[in-house]
């Protein structure tokens, strides 16, 4: 996929407290849709899905006092584009002590785009156990799906052109909370 140049113009879509409000909203939606988030596990997809999953768990705990187990699910070995790029380093896969069997797994990622990462995540998850159901939470949905995949929880829909890219920054990884749209026409 074409990437915008490094010096391309960029626009900030979400920043600081806006982003926090979006996370809060997703947490509320999860509580609502899952009847209080019981029997639920959050699995973040590295890199930025993992801190997002932890934030969601923390907000859910703050709102309702429920402890939702959090883990991480690395999809590198399951990607369908491994051979198109130089070898990638692996991320961490860590399941909570209770595992995923018979539980509702909510996959957490920063951006939903082609849907290929989610497909890889479903394959990876299948190797780890048998959840009762799988849902998907994303901070940003930028469209352009290439697979029949849809998110259950979306923080913000951002219509984009293919020539643009969406860059999510999180304090835990990048030192700031921010969602940027880079490239294309502004």
């Amino acid at each position: 996929m074409a990437q915008p140049r490094a010096d391309a113009p960029s626009k900030i879509i979400l920043a600081g407290s806006d982003l926090h409000r979006v996370v809060d909203r997703i947490a509320h939606q999860i509580l609502e849709k899952t009847s209080g988030a019981t029997g639920t596990v959050l699995l973040g997809i590295p890199t930025r899905g993992v801190p997002l999953a932890h934030r969601l768990a923390a907000r859910i705990h703050a709102f309702e006092g429920v402890e939702v187990p959090v883990g991480s699910l690395d999809i590198t070995l399951y990607r369908d584009d491994l051979r198109l790029k130089a070898t990638r380093a692996l991320g961490k896969t860590e399941l909570p002590p209770g595992g995923v069997d018979g539980l509702r797994v909510i996959l957490v990622d920063d951006v939903l785009f082609s849907g290929r990462s989610v497909r890889a995540a479903l394959d990876a998850l299948q190797e780890l156990g048998r959840p009762s159901s799988v849902q998907l939470a994303v901070l940003v949905d930028r469209g352009h799906r290439q697979l029949p995949i849809r998110a259950d929880y979306v923080g913000k829909n951002i219509p984009t052109a293919l020539s643009e890219s969406v860059k999510v920054a999180l304090t835990e990884v990048d030192g700031a909370d921010e969602v940027k749209l880079i490239g294309g026409l502004t």
């Binding site: 380093a89 896969t93 190797e127």
Partner: peptide, 20 residues
């Protein structure tokens, strides 16, 4: 060595085949 550590964690599970 770091990759091996991830591989060790994955291999420990029931299904040992990875598609990479």
């Amino acid at each position: 060595l770091d990759t091996a550590a991830e591989m060790a964690a994955l291999s420990g599970r029931e299904v040992k085949k990875l598609p990479a």
